Amino acid sequence: MSIFSIFSKQRTAPAARERLQVLLAHERVSAGSDLVSLLREEILAVIAKHVQVDSERVRVTMDRDEHMSILEIDVEIPLGASVRAA
C-alpha cells in the first residue's frame, strides 16, 4: 500500500457485494433477522449515489429453499433520470 492509495477513488460496488455476501451468510445462520429490510436500505443508499429513484419503486425480496436463498432486486429507473458520478 502506498501513500497515494489514500487519494484514489474508492469503489463502492466491491464493498456492496462484500456486504451482501456477509449479510447472506449471517442470514443463513440466524433466524428472525430482518435481513430484507436492511438490504433494501443499503441498496437504496448505493443507488442514490448514482441516480435519483423513488424509494417506493425499489423492491427487494428473498426466497429460501432447503439449499439456497435467492435475493431478487427490482429497481424502476425513470427514462429521464440523470446519472451522477460517485
Rank of each mutant, 00 (worst) to 15 (best):
S55Y: 13
K9R: 15
A13K: 15
S33Y: 12
I3W: 14
A16F: 12
A85P: 09
A86I: 00
R17A: 02
T12M: 04
M68G: 11
L71G: 06
S69H: 09
V51T: 05
H26P: 00
R59C: 07
V29H: 13
A16E: 04
S37D: 10
R19E: 03
R59Q: 10
S2N: 15
V75M: 08
H50N: 09
E72F: 05
A86Y: 00
V83D: 07
I43D: 04
P78K: 13
V51D: 10
V51S: 10
L39T: 03
L71S: 06
V58R: 14
G32D: 05
I47P: 06
V60P: 04
V60T: 00
I70E: 08
I43E: 06
Q21K: 14
S69V: 02
A81I: 00
L39R: 09
D54T: 00
Q10W: 06
M1K: 11
D54I: 00
E41V: 03
R19Q: 04
V58L: 15
E18M: 14
G32P: 05
V36E: 14
D63S: 08
A48S: 15
V22C: 02
A86M: 01
R11T: 04
V60Y: 13
E18C: 02
R59K: 13
V53M: 06
E42R: 14
A31Q: 10
L71T: 02
R57A: 11
K49E: 10
A81S: 15
A16S: 09
